[in-house]
């Protein structure tokens, strides 16, 4: 049974303090509990959480839903948003954690990446170094979410064609993002259209999908 690795890269910089980070935590909880009610996800989905602020941490190594326990997330008072470094860590973890298929053994499904930020990368040089590396990792889908008025789409568009812009970063819109993530992860066992490859479900009403 192949695993479906899902990487969540979450902005935890100072601007996320307060309502936003609570919304993210809440969203993660809803995500996990929804996936735990989905037999397809229970069989394949593995989740990893990497947070970035001034520090970059893999709070949760790739773990299945049966054993997963959500980590505590505490954003710092202030400081830079080291998104570039987070992407570099992601690439390292991908190399370490993903089981690639060999002639002998089936490996993992292509991993999915969901990145959420309410700002922009502070470490632009590293960001630009990371983007081409991420692209070599053969992701099944990369979805970037820009939440709130200060979030800048243009950098994210360098990373992926699928940029979702949330006009506000309050709890209900952030929640709709996590619900969408859970629906996207679930598409693997949905009916497949005759027209073309359908990868993502339609985004929730509050979200603008920028292609």
């Amino acid at each position: 049974m192949r695993r479906l690795p899902v990487y969540l890269l979450l902005d935890t910089s100072g601007s996320m303090r307060g309502e936003r980070i609570e919304a993210v935590k809440n969203g993660l909880q809803v995500l996990v509990s929804k996936l735990r009610q989905d037999p397809f996800a229970l069989e394949s989905v593995h989740i990893s959480i990497i947070t970035f602020d001034r520090e970059v941490k893999q709070l949760l190594p790739l773990t299945d839903l049966e054993h997963l326990q959500l980590p505590e997330i505490i954003p710092p008072e202030s400081g830079p948003t080291n998104m570039g470094e987070a992407l570099l860590m992601l690439c390292d973890q991908i190399d370490r954690e993903i089981i690639r298929s060999t002639e002998e053994e089936k490996g993992d499904w292509r991993p999915l990446l969901f990145l959420m930020t309410d700002g922009k990368p502070s470490d632009l040089a590293k960001f630009r170094e990371a983007v081409p590396r991420v692209k070599t990792k053969n992701f099944g889908a990369v979805v970037a979410c820009a939440a709130g008025a200060e979030a800048v789409d243009s950098f994210l568009k360098e990373l992926t064609d699928t940029v979702v812009h949330l006009d506000t970063a309050d709890s209900s819109t952030l929640m709709s993002f996590f619900k969408w993530v859970s629906a996207s992860i679930g598409t693997g066992n949905k009916s497949v259209g005759t027209a073309e490859e359908m990868v993502l479900p339609p985004p929730p009403a509050e979200v603008h999908l920028i292609i």
Binding site: R100, S101, T102, E104, K106, G107, W109
Partner: peptide, 12 residues
Amino acid sequence: GGKIHDTDPQKD
């Protein structure tokens, strides 16, 4: 089953 058709999971 255990047979590998391609090392790319989608193609496999």
